[in-house]
Design a protein around this nucleic acid. Structure first.
Lengths: 179, 179
DNA sequence: TTCTACATGTAATGAGTTACATGATTAC
DNA sequence: GTAATCATGTAACTCATTACATGTAGAA
């Protein structure tokens, strides 16, 4: 059910096509939720059936036709209800590199370190991109009133990746000690 | 497919029943993977069919019978293969509190803060438990040779929750500024 | 000429969740 | 008498992933 609310949250800011929603997911929502385009299109269809959004099809000559979705009052109400009343719990990570780390005693230190190095590269890349995105969107820490959420979550993203990288360096040191 | 490797990783250390594997999940693996017991039992059956593990049923009089699973050579080979050759990518978070944070511009600051406070409680609790677990299992930072993985991942858990809490405090301050 | 952006989807499969079922024992 | 621990599972359902499909335009 959570994908639905992620989509409602984006639509509450602006009407958009499935394609655009997918772009926005990749750009921002990715710090804490991830969805495939196939899943987004499917969910949008269901949301329309249930009266949470409406769509208008726009004919285009050069490009394929597109469908613009708008949130309904009903959809917005449902979003607020969910935000306030869904019980808060501890989130469930699913990280398959960490899963491998938990079995590092079965691997020679060298190969374990190499896995961590590769993962560091990805996180370094992600960190750079997120920082750049923040600088573009929130120059000098300023943000519009409907950007508060993204301001807070992108800061989370930065901190998360930084803490990941520093843990990684620590773990590499531990592995080197062991030989 | 990852649940399967999580189970193989645990079985590679000790033979165990589905019930025990579920306990171990709750205790340690929970930092980066989560599974329901129903899923664990289903996966174990499949793993046996595919020759990655074998089981022996033990009759008990006072308690229900139990099935002890052992990893096979085949299973262990497959585990190593996966650890080394599965491409390293950036993990996909799914955190539904952060999803709500990303929509905080739709909520009065007071209610937003209250959600963060609730989440802080959960993370504080988790942090305490993990620290306690670490003290019990690794007194003065010492660990057995087949505990390296858990030593590294539980440190990750601690850092993750600490960084979560500190971000949370920062976010609460931001929200207070806005009123 | 190959790749990327545009734009939307179906079908099949795999993974995860919830509800239900059984039934004794022990601790509060 | 209420709940937790031990121990295993089925069935129904929802959610997520991968592969496939279509077709144009413009940039490298």
């Amino acid at each position: 059910m959570a994908l639905r609310y992620a989509l409602l949250g984006l639509l509450a800011k602006n009407e958009a096509t499935g394609y655009e929603l997918n772009q926005q997911f990749k750009e921002t929502v990715v710090h804490f939720w991830m969805a495939h385009h196939t899943q987004i299109y499917r969910e949008l269809l269901k949301m329309e059936e249930e009266g949470l959004a409406t769509s208008t099809t726009i004919q285009q000559s050069d490009y394929p036709d597109k469908k613009i979705y708008k949130i309904t009052d009903n959809g917005f109400q449902m979003l607020l209800e969910w935000m306030l009343n869904k019980p808060v719990t501890i989130p469930k990570l699913k990280d398959d590199l960490l899963l491998r780390v938990s079995m590092f005693h079965f691997l020679p230190a060298k190969q374990a370190i190499s896995l961590l190095e590769k993962s560091k590269e990805h996180h370094q890349m992600g960190l750079m991109m997120t920082k750049k995105w923040r600088e573009e969107h929130f120059p000098e820490g300023t943000y519009g009133q409907n950007e508060l959420g993204e301001y807070l979550t992108s800061e989370f993203g930065v901190r998360y990746m930084e803490s990941w990288l520093s843990w990684c360096d620590w773990a590499i040191e531990e592995l080197k000690k062991k030989g």
